[in-house]
Structures are given as structure tokens and as C-alpha cells.
């Protein structure tokens, strides 16, 4: 089942991207392909969950599958809600790219779940974070796209080009805050302290702080889109460092959050 679902998801999202790009007057065609991809990816996750006998939220590879699924899902839902397909193509392409990365670097399946992760907070904490990462990832991609378009065409950045990424931050930032707070409550229950300045916690705070700074700077610089979109891009770089990059840093040895790596 998983061997079929993953390629179907990637194919669905690639077709959706093409349909959105070349069939602007009929966005429903893109929506259908995007939904097909989301359903296939959801089936993949459900099968993986069943096969592992635990929530597939432990390793980097597993969280990447959630990300690949949630980015196009959010793209669709927010698109319907706000009657825009501005994020449809980047959402589908990001979903396809992350799914492809996982197919190219398959995880060793591991059914074990260490005692600290056996908590009711496990699923909400990680899923809320993945939702936040999805919304913030979309905002940054749209921001980079707007910046790039402005540089190439030498045209000023339009209001919509900053409003849509900002809207995604307004959705992603509360979710990011939720993830951080859930993590603190869980840490108190599991390790005795809600905040221990563990490297992962520090980077989670840095990520949250980067978007906090963006929100405040945008309040004062709404007329300076290059500044605000630039900070948004920087914020996403910090987010990626928190999610992936930290495992490559020398400080990762100090972290108790080592279960995010592939089992070795």
C-alpha cells in the first residue's frame, strides 16, 4: 500500500501544480489533483502508523512525511477559505519535494518508542508543530518568490505578495506558540522541568523569537516589503536549523531530543 500511495501523492501534486499553472480559469482541476495527493499521503501515513504500531512522529523522516502531507492540505484549505490560489503551486511542489526526499532517503522502520515519548502530549505537540512549520514554510516560499519576482522584473512588490505570506504567519505563529507551550508542559511531566535550555528547546525559542520579531517589525514597516519578506526568509532558515540542522551541530550531543534522528 505504502509503495503505491507515495508515488500517487507525488504524481497528484505535480499534476496539480501543472493544472494550476496552465489552467488558471479552472482551478478546480488543480484542486482535484491536489486532493488526490493529500488523500494518498494520508493513506500512506495511516498505513505507516498501523505498521509501526505507534504514531509515526519520531524520526526526521517520519515528520517529513507529515510535512509533505500538511503543506498541500493547508494550501488547499487556506486557498478555499480566502478564495486565492496564490499558494497552491508552491504548496503542491513543496509536498512533492519533501515526499521525494523521503523516498530517496528511506528510513529504517523502527517500532520502538522510548518511555519519554509515551505521553498524551506526543501527538498534539508534534502535529501542531508540523502544522505551524507548514504554514510558516509556505509563507517563506511565497516571500522568497515575491522577492525574486521583484528583482527579476524590477517591479515593486505588490500588496498581495506581502499579504498572503503574512496571512500564513498569522496562522502559523499561534500554532508555533502552541507547540512550544505543549512542549514545556510535557517536559515538566517527563523530565521535571518545563525549560532546561536543551539545544532543541533553545532553537525552538529562537524560531519562535524570529517570527515574533517579524510580526513586530511588520507593524512598523508594512510599507517596506523587502525588509519584512527578508526577515520572513531568515525566520524560515532558523526554523530549518531547529528541525534538521541541529542534528549536524556539535551541540546536538548535549540534547536529550535525540529521538528525532533515524534509529541507528
Amino acid at each position: 500500500m505504502m509503495a503505491i500511495a507515495a508515488p500517487v501523492a507525488i504524481g497528484g501534486w505535480l499534476l496539480a501544480s501543472g493544472a494550476y499553472a496552465f489552467g488558471r480559469k479552472k482551478p478546480w482541476i488543480g484542486d482535484v489533483f491536489a486532493m488526490l495527493g493529500v488523500l494518498a499521503a494520508a493513506l500512506f501515513l495511516a498505513t505507516l502508523w498501523t505498521q509501526l504500531g505507534r504514531p509515526p512522529l519520531r524520526t526526521l523522516g517520519e515528520t517529513r512525511w507529515w510535512y509533505a502531507t500538511l503543506v498541500p492540505t493547508l494550501g488547499l484549505l487556506i486557498g478555499w477559505r480566502f478564495q486565492t490560489r496564490a499558494m497552491a503551486i508552491p504548496a503542491c511542489l513543496m509536498g512533492a519535494m519533501f515526499a521525494w526526499i523521503n523516498l530517496a532517503n528511506p528510513d529504517h522502520l523502527d517500532k520502538t518508542l522510548m518511555p519519554a515519548l509515551q505521553s498524551p502530549w506526543f501527538v498534539p505537540h508534534v502535529v501542531v508543530y508540523m502544522l505551524a512549520y507548514s504554514a510558516l514554510g509556505l509563507s517563506s516560499i511565497l516571500g522568497i518568490w515575491a522577492l525574486g519576482k521583484s528583482v527579476i522584473t524590477k517591479q515593486p512588490i505588490s500588496q498581495e505578495d506581502t499579504d498572503v505570506p503574512h496571512r500564513m504567519v498569522l496562522i502559523g505563529f499561534p500554532l508555533l506558540t502552541c507547540g512550544l507551550l505543549f512542549g514545556a508542559i510535557w517536559a515538566k511531566q517527563a523530565w521535571g522541568h518545563y525549560w532546561a535550555w536543551d539545544p532543541k528547546e533553545t532553537w525552538a525559542l529562537l524560531t519562535w523569537g524570529a517570527y515574533l520579531i517579524y510580526l513586530h517589525i511588520r507593524l512598523k514597516n508594512v510599507m517596506k516589503p523587502k525588509v519584512t519578506l527578508g526577515i520572513l526568509t531568515l525566520g524560515f532558515a532558523v526554523l530549518m536549523a531547529c528541525w534538521f540542522g541541529i542534528n549536524l551541530m556539535p551541540i546536538s550531543g548535549d540534547s536529550v531530543h535525540t529521538y528525532t534522528r533515524t534509529a541507528d
Binding site: P199, L206, I213, L219, I251
Partner: peptide, 26 residues
């Protein structure tokens, strides 16, 4: 003010970045 909010948050996070990059022993 927002300028003080931005400056104090940025500087505090810059310090935290040092703690997030280098091991305690270093």
C-alpha cells in the same frame, strides 16, 4: 515601544543563539 521590543528581543535571542550553537563545556 516596538523599537525597544524588537531590539531587546533580538539581542536576547542573539545571546541565546550562542547557547544554541556551542556546547556548554566550550
Amino acid at each position: 515601544s516596538i523599537p525597544l521590543a524588537v531590539a531587546s528581543t533580538t539581542v536576547t535571542l542573539a545571546m541565546a543563539l550562542v547557547g544554541g550553537l556551542f556546547p556548554l563545556a566550550a
